[in-house]
Design a binder for these strands. Structure first.
Lengths: 209, 209
DNA sequence: GTCTATATGGTGATAGAC
DNA sequence: GTCTATCACCATATAGAC
């Protein structure tokens, strides 16, 4: 995982990243102070500013880790053996699993979607911001393409507005940052079962077949 | 629509409420200053503090309006003629329509779900907070009950984990605060079509029948 | 690398004139 | 009811010792 400046992530940077993700998740970006992050590290804010130029850069790095985890999980699943609807299913299951595994980071990703352009950004931050928006679009695009291919193959309904369908389905997966709690499903197996149940609802709906 | 203190909503209160909802949506609760709200009103913050004791009380009132709109829309739809799956469909369509109509307020509701208990609350604010949590649970409960009834009637699959299914489906509806933009679907009819397409995906999934 | 100041600015909330 | 002025506080970010 590389930072915005292309430097490899040092050990202390990773620790800061995890502390920040936890704080941002619990209190939100604006309500989190650098002192909060430092306190969670058991240190002072000098160390944070030694590794990150600003709070926003820190936020961007947390976002980047979360989004990279999603993109990576989904594209690996996409390249698996499945085709058509089976491929979409594999993507969604991997997606949901990543939502659980990187829970704090994905919570921050969800906040980042809402991040406005009001706060002043340096050119470098602006670049990071644009990159994040692009990565978000890329994720959605992967799903759209796969659903369209499945439509051609006849394993997904042809009468579907793909854009709306994908947005709605991804909403079902992403919203889990709101209600899912790590304490509830600790084992990998429990998480996988949950992911399967969620994806099952999204692919088949409520109606009996 | 009544405020937390039970007073009827005056005209100026309503204006403040709308301005606050817009600001909270655009910048988030913590990044919004009372000056921002006042500026959107074309006034100064004296007027805001004349009507609301604190920023958090203002937030709670915005949240309350948004949540009341959802509860009201969904429970009216529930009491309609439909039964079983048709009733769930009517609830979801009304739900989605309310998400659009009260877009700014529902955006704040989504933020409120994340609102932490860290910030100090007065006993009265604490009471509001608990009431909001309860209203959120009530909304989910309405869906769970209706889905279970539909299961008994055989119009919804019996093999479904109702709690997970409802959370996932509501995620699909609620996430629209993230991607939906008022400019895109101005007419009531365009909105209704969008709502129907979203609900169609949630009830039937992707697979052809 | 990590710490302790501290500069600097913004924000919630209040006081009090009109 | 609405304004101006102001207080008290907190948070970002920096400087500089060790």
């Amino acid at each position: 995982m590389s930072s915005s400046s292309g430097k490899p992530a040092s050990d202390s940077r990773l620790q800061i990243l995890h502390a920040a993700a936890g704080c941002f998740m619990e209190r939100g970006f604006h309500a989190t102070s650098i002192d909060h992050v430092a306190h969670r590290l058991g240190a002072t804010k000098g160390i944070v500013y030694h590794h990150y130029q600003s709070k926003m850069d820190l936020f961007f790095d947390v976002y980047r880790v979360g989004m990279t985890a999603l993109l990576s999980a989904v594209s690996v699943a996409r390249q698996g053996p499945g085709r058509g609807l089976a491929s979409v299913r594999a993507m969604l299951e991997a997606h949901a699993m990543a939502m659980f595994e990187f829970h704090a980071f994905e919570n921050v990703v969800a906040q980042g979607v809402q991040l406005h352009r009001f706060s002043a950004m340096t050119p470098s931050q602006r670049e990071s911001f644009d990159e994040l928006v692009a990565s978000r679009d890329r994720l959605e695009q992967m799903y759209k393409e796969e659903v369209e291919m499945a439509q051609s193959a006849g394993t997904v309904r042809a009468d579907l507005d793909v854009s709306i369908a994908v947005k709605t389905i991804l909403g079902g997966v992403h919203w889990s940052v709101i209600w899912w709690r790590p304490e509830a499903d600790e084992g990998l197996q429990a998480r996988h079962q949950l992911a399967q149940k969620m994806v099952d609802v999204l692919l088949h709906g409520l109606e009996p077949r």
